[in-house]
Design a protein around this nucleic acid. Structure first.
Lengths: 156, 156
DNA sequence: CCAGTTAGTTGCATGATGAAACTAAGTTGC
DNA sequence: GCAACTTAGTTTCATCATGCAACTAACTGG
């Protein structure tokens, strides 16, 4: 088969995330959902994407447990797409993407918005990698370890 | 045109990031590069991807300033692909993707590796969103603000 | 200088994407 | 209660992207 490769069975957690989020639209749909959008038409007009693609993406996000369908909150018979906790858990990913753009984009003057904390109105701090004891870590300070195989009961 | 939509001119920094990183392979190539891979053949065999796709992706990453080509460090006449600072700056994105998978994946037992701090061998702390003054922030504690238009000199 | 390796490119089949048209419920005006 | 409109999709078809395999050409090792 000449199918688009899926990373579903991959053992790398990054690949597994990308299997759910790694296309052009999913993270933008999630971004809008975090911003409060819920209805098919809202996503479609805000993102300006084709409705068939949106339809496929929404279904995939629901299948992945990132969005869930719910009866419309305005009393109409239509349904809404709302983020699950798993969906809201992508927030750090979006923040990381945003901060990367803010720091490295070739044309930062074209960036229209800043993420600020609601209380003070000041920009959110840059995400930091820290060790358990609080030390600041660079990529070079980290390494990958094999996850210990989880034994069921006292089998071994 | 029925071209794949590009987010290059979009004013949202997330869309702009996705324009460079938002396909199935680029972040995995960067992951391997962070892990130390440098040569075309290394990427190809490690990722198991078609060589033409790898070729296109590497060129795109170089064009985006994420990778740079350099003469091979082993003295051969071949070239290597090394991360630029902009490329290394994607590390938080990869960590966020990894942690999302670790926290929400339906089959976490299939995840093979853990990111640990090299010194202590202990897992890296979960990325946190914090305000300038250090308060821990949830998505609901944040909001978007329009970036003040940057005036050149004292034009206004 | 010949065999094998490295780093690609080309060709072709197939899958994904996108615009527009189409459909079918649900809602509104009267 | 029904015609007109809105919402939420699905279908169709052209085009783009992806993936495999085969091909090419430069480099390397003996």
């Amino acid at each position: 088969m000449v199918k688009r490769t899926s990373f579903e069975g991959d053992s790398c957690p990054i690949a597994r995330s990308l299997d759910a989020l790694g296309d052009w639209w999913s993270l933008l749909i999630i971004r809008e959902a975090l911003f409060g959008l819920r209805r098919f038409g809202e996503f479609q007009s805000k993102l300006g994407m084709a409705k068939n693609i949106l339809s496929v993406r929404l279904r995939a996000l629901v299948d992945h447990g990132i969005l869930a369908t719910a009866p419309a909150s305005d009393g109409s018979a239509y349904q809404e797409y709302v983020l699950t906790p798993k969906g809201r858990g992508t927030f750090p990913i979006l923040v990381a993407l945003r901060q990367w753009s803010e720091e490295f984009d070739d044309h930062p003057e074209e960036i229209a918005t800043i993420l600020v904390d609601r209380e003070k109105g000041r920009p959110v701090k840059k995400l930091e990698m820290r060790a358990e004891d609080g030390r600041l870590l660079t990529p070079a300070d980290t390494t990958l370890k094999l996850r210990p195989a989880r034994r069921r009961r006292a089998t071994g």
